[in-house]
Design a binder for these strands. Structure first.
Length: 422
RNA sequence: GUGGGUAUAGCUCAGUUGGUUAGAGCGCAGGAUUGUGGCUCCUGAGGCCGAGGGUUCAAAUCCCUUUACCCACCCCA
C-alpha cells in the first residue's frame, strides 16, 4: 500500500467480486420471495431530516443519542444518513398517501444503512439491510405470515441454526401500567444497576431488561414480566400468533426479556438469532408498530415490519450458494485477421448471457488455452491463418480433448446450438 | 467511548540473540513444447517490512508516537 493511497473510510466496507455475485444471488432470492407474497419495492432516499429519526426511533435510544451520522448541510439544515429503514418507509407512506390508494400496503427495500459504531465482526458503519413493512393490517395472521416468510427465506438459503425469539411489548392500553410497575421495581434496586440503566429507569425502563451487564442481569431477575400484564387484546393477539406458528411448524422461543432498541414497537417483537455469528448474533429482527404512522403525522395505521442484516445473512449463507457459472466457450484467435473475424460472433453471442470469452491481446495458443481451462469453458474454438484460409474453426472439447471442425460461416449459429444443448 | 491483538509481495504467512542483496507457498507472466490446457521442471516480474520519529557502526527486528485492520465490551441488523 503506497503512502498516499486513498482508502475507504473506517467501517465502510465494499463488496467485491466474487462476493458481489453471491450478494446478487441472495438479494434475488429475497426479492422473489417477497414479491411472491405481494410486496413491492421502494427505493428511498438515504439522507433524511434528523427530526424523522429522533421522532420515530426515539431520542432516548442509543442509535439517536450516539450512533447517527448527523451533520449540517450548506443551508444549516440538520440531516442524517439513515440508520435504519422503517422510519423512511413510514415517512414515504405518509408523504405519498399510500394509505389512501389501497387498504393494505406491502413494501420492501434493500440498501445501505449508516451507524457510527466501532466496527467489528458482523458490524459495520455502512451496512446493508433487506427489510419489509406491511401497513393497514392489524391481524396476528399478518405477524405469522411475515415470520413464516422469513423462515422460508432462511430455508431457501440453506441457513440453519437460526432461532426465532418472540415477545409481546403490549400496547398503549397495557404498557403504561407495566412501565410504572417495572419502574418502581428498578428504583428499588437502583444501586445495583449500571449507570446506563439508572438513567434508563425514567425514560426507557424496558431497555434495562435487555442490558447485558452481569450486575443488571442479576438485578432484574424476578422483575415483573410484560406477558403477565398484557391486556386481553394483546394477550389474544400474542396467543393467536403463537398458535399459527405452531400450526406452521415453526419453532420459536418466547423470551420475555426481548426488548427492541427502537421505541416504536408495540405488541409483537422478534429476533432471529444465529448461533455462529459471534457477538453480533441477530440476523433479522422487527415487530409490530401500530402507533408509528400516526406519530409521524399519518392516519392511525397498524403496521408490521422487519429488517435483515445483509452482511450477517451472507456470513451464514455465503459458502452454501451455488458456484458461479462459467462461460461456455473460449474463442481463440491466432493473429489479427482471426481476431477480427471472431469479434462480431463474440459480441452477438454475449447479448443475453456470457457464452464466449475472447482475448484481444494476440496471445499464444498455449496461454489462451490455459486461460480457457482456468475459466472452466466446455469448448475452445481455435482460428488461425490455416483455418481462415479453409473457412473453418477447430472446436476442441476441453474435457475429452476431442477436436472437430466447424464451418466459420455458421460458427455463431453452431455455437448457439451447442450452448442450448447443454 | 473502553479493552486486547495484529500490520512484511496481489493473497496466506516465515524471518533466530539487531548483522551483507528480505524469503516461502499460492497467484501472475514467460519458457521447456516454432499452433494445443490441467501434471512436472526452469525463469521472471512484483516490497519505502503500515506511517513518522528515536537508539545503534548497523533496525523488518529494540524504544516512542501515530494510523489502519481484527476481536471483545457496548450497541444492534
Amino acid at each position: 500500500m503506497k503512502k498516499n493511497q486513498i482508502k475507504t473510510v473506517k467501517g465502510f466496507n465494499e463488496v467485491l467480486p466474487p462476493e458481489s455475485f453471491r450478494w446478487r444471488m441472495v438479494e434475488d432470492k429475497f426479492r422473489d420471495l417477497l414479491e411472491g407474497y405481494g410486496f413491492a419495492e421502494l427505493r428511498l432516499a438515504m439522507l433524511e431530516s434528523t427530526e424523522l429519526f429522533a421522532r420515530s426511533i426515539g431520542d432516548e435510544t442509543d442509535i439517536v443519542e450516539k450512533e447517527m451520522y448527523t451533520f449540517l448541510d450548506r443551508s444549516e439544515r440538520s440531516l442524517t444518513l439513515r440508520p435504519e429503514g422503517t422510519a423512511s418507509v413510514v415517512r414515504a407512506f405518509n408523504q405519498y398517501s399510500f394509505g389512501k390508494t389501497s387498504e393494505i400496503n406491502k413494501l420492501y427495500y434493500v440498501g445501505p444503512m449508516f451507524r457510527y459504531e466501532r466496527p467489528q465482526k458482523g458490524r459495520y458503519r455502512q451496512f446493508h439491510q433487506l427489510g419489509a413493512e406491511v401497513f393497514g393490517e392489524a391481524s396476528f395472521y399478518q405477524d405469522a405470515e411475515t415470520l413464516v416468510m422469513l423462515a422460508q427465506l432462511f430455508h431457501t438459503l440453506s441457513v440453519e441454526g437460526v432461532i426465532l425469539h418472540l415477545n409481546s411489548l403490549g400496547c398503549e392500553a397495557c404498557r403504561p401500567a407495566f412501565r410504572d410497575q417495572l419502574k418502581s421495581f428498578l428504583l428499588d434496586r437502583q444501586t445495583s444497576l449500571c449507570s446506563d440503566c439508572q438513567r434508563r429507569i425514567q425514560e426507557n425502563p424496558l431497555r434495562a431488561l435487555d442490558c447485558k451487564n452481569p450486575a443488571c442481569r442479576e438485578a432484574v431477575v424476578g422483575a415483573p414480566q410484560i406477558n403477565e400484564s398484557l391486556c386481553d387484546d394483546c394477550r389474544d393477539h400474542f396467543s393467536g400468533l403463537c398458535g399459527l406458528l405452531d400450526d406452521a411448524g415453526l419453532d420459536y422461543q418466547v423470551n420475555s426479556q426481548l426488548v427492541r432498541g427502537l421505541d416504536y414497537y408495540t405488541r409483537t417483537t422478534f429476533e432471529f438469532l444465529a448461533g455462529d455469528l459471534g457477538a453480533q448474533n441477530a440476523v433479522a429482527a422487527g415487530g409490530r408498530y401500530d402507533r408509528l404512522v400516526e406519530e409521524l403525522g399519518g392516519k392511525p395505521t397498524p403496521a408490521f415490519g422487519f429488517a435483515i442484516g445483509f452482511e450477517r445473512l451472507m456470513m451464514l449463507a455465503g459458502d452454501k450458494l451455488a458456484p458461479l457459472s462459467s462461460p461456455f466457450a473460449a474463442l481463440v484467435p491466432l493473429g489479427e485477421a482471426a481476431l477480427r473475424r471472431l469479434f462480431p460472433i463474440h459480441v452477438n453471442l454475449n447479448r443475453d448471457a456470457q457464452v464466449t470469452t475472447l482475448s484481444f491481446q494476440q496471445k499464444s495458443l498455449k496461454s489462451q488455452l490455459k486461460k480457457a481451462d482456468k475459466d472452466g469453458v466446455m469448448y475452445a474454438l481455435i482460428v488461425g491463418p490455416d483455418e481462415l484460409s479453409q473457412e473453418i474453426a477447430i472446436c476442441r472439447n476441453m474435457r475429452t480433448k476431442e477436436q472437430t471442425q466447424l464451418p466459420l460461416r455458421n460458427l455463431e449459429e453452431a455455437l448457439q446450438e451447442l450452448y442450448h444443448e447443454c
